[in-house]
Amino acid sequence: MSKNTNFKYRLEFSKTGRMIFIGHLDTLQLFHRAIKKAGIRIAYSQGFNPHQLTTFAVPLALGVESVGEILDIQLVEKMDCEEIKNRLNEATPLDIEILQVIELENSSENCASSVRFADYCVSLDGQYEKVSSVVQEILESDEILIERTVKKKTKTVDIRPLIKSLTVDKDGEKTEIYANIATGSKANLKIDVLIEYIYNKLGLEFRFEKVDILRGTLYTEHEGDLLPLCLEEEFM
């Protein structure tokens, strides 16, 4: 294979408001069009059906807001990061905003393989004390076994090791749960699984569409530390 001479960039963007109803693949398609519309010279794959060289770190579930989505793109020419950001912000619809663009080393690993953890904030009505005690209980346990049914087979998994941190805060009438959980291809905890567990403990019925979930920063791991995926190399 010939050497990859493309220029790699990493975008961090938010997906909020109305855009939470756009699924993962449609978001990818949207970016493909926005990139074209912005006149950014994207690189294409070889072969019969060339496609744009873009990679998302990790899919976002329908209905979840995010302020930390990551997309890697490869361009055929060098471009100023601010320029990419501004042009894309012109081209994308409201409720998608490019927050940051950084240039990557040509040799760097793509975001999908380096993502390890994600921040989440889940907001629910009242229940502050009760939620706090459930969270405390979780943090004090060595293991939390839940039943997962995958392809008709039920298996028991321990989700405790997948929870890096978990805290509760109060915002007026709202109770906010902050979680940092394993995300990516190596180990992955779905936020709704964790929240459902908490709801069950509270004796409440969990209905996904009734809960407001926000995803924050996505992280990679570097020598035991969590580092945001979208971070200029010099800070690393």
Binding site: R18, M19, I20, F21, I22, G23, D26, L30, R33, A34, K37, L62, G63, A91, T92, P93, L94, D95, F208, E209, K210
Partner: peptide, 20 residues
């Protein structure tokens, strides 16, 4: 939001397309 998360293809009802 609650309703839209319970129907098929919620994007049918939100507009917000490129060039709207």
């Amino acid at each position: 939001k609650e309703i839209l998360l319970q129907v098929e293809k919620p994007a049918r009802y939100i507009g917000n397309e490129i060039n709207m």
